[in-house]
């Protein structure tokens, strides 16, 4: 019997939740796959550095250039570093980094695990006495959860540097003045919640990528579909989680 759209959505949501639950059940029990975890840190974290850094730099630069005319109109040009730093650190750097990672890491994990599934490599792993969920899934979710916040901190720094250059294209702001204004403006209540939410972004990206890849079927066509839906769903989840995070931060009066 063909399922309706709502039913399929609910089934899929249930399956993803169970999959995430299995991660918590299996990831913290020995035997720990430290070698594979470190290998994934290299591929997921280190290999994403250049892309994240370039994007963050451009975002910082562009946001500063775009914001300047409006502030000049109100005679508030001196507030440029303050305004830019808050928007970059609280929202733009975390969300843009998470979206970049959803594209790069989510599709990578989805396609890798998907092709392993259809070529029976996951079965081979199970037959050779290695728990494939622990070895492939737990390590990747853990890596995504832990490395994306680090990438966001880097993106914060690089985007603020981009902002400094942007502020100096038309105006003149000294290095010391710029950073003094940035750090005067930013409080822990800006930085900590924005980093905390990126752990959830990372977890969502890793979980969706692994879920889609691990449950891939229908041959090579299925692999492409897994990679594609991993990106679409994890990107959407980043926005949903961001929306929730903003509401919670607002409720806790951290704005």
């Amino acid at each position: 019997m063909k399922q309706g759209v709502l039913m399929r959505f609910l089934n899929e949501t249930g399956d993803i939740t169970r999959f995430a639950g299995r991660f918590f059940k299996e990831a913290f029990k020995p035997r720990y796959e430290i070698g594979e975890f470190l290998r994934q840190c290299f591929f997921i974290g280190y290999k994403s550095l250049p892309l994240v850094a370039i994007t963050a730099f451009i975002m910082g630069l562009v946001i500063t250039i775009q914001s300047r005319p409006t502030l000049v109109e109100f005679g508030a040009e001196a507030w440029l570093p303050k305004m830019v730093s808050v928007s970059l650190v609280r929202e733009i750097a975390p969300v843009i980094t998470a979206l970049i990672c959803a594209g790069k890491i989510g599709s990578g994990i989805g396609a890798e695990l998907g092709s392993m599934k259809v070529t029976e490599q996951i079965d081979a792993m199970e037959v050779s006495g290695t728990n494939p969920f622990k070895y492939l899934v737990a390590t990747r979710i853990m890596t995504a959860t832990l490395t994306i916040p680090i990438l966001v901190v880097l993106a914060d720094a690089v985007s603020l540097y981009g902002g400094y250059l942007g502020a100096n294209i038309r105006g003149v702001v000294s290095w010391d003045l710029y950073w003094n204004q940035v750090f005067d403006t930013l409080a822990f209540s800006d930085v900590i919640p924005s980093i905390l939410k990126t752990f959830f972004f990372g977890f969502a990206i890793g979980t969706i990528g692994c879920y889609k890849g691990y449950n891939s079927n229908k041959g090579t066509e299925g692999v492409g579909r897994s990679a594609n839906s991993a990106v679409v769903i994890s990107s959407l989840l980043v926005f949903i989680l961001d929306l929730l995070a903003v509401q919670i931060i607002d409720l806790l009066n951290l704005t």
């Binding site: 890798e112 029976e120 490599q121 081979a124």
Partner: peptide
């Protein structure tokens, strides 16, 4: 395995 299932990586 029929497809050999050698680990590509």
């Amino acid at each position: 395995f029929q497809s050999n299932a050698l680990y590509d990586s």
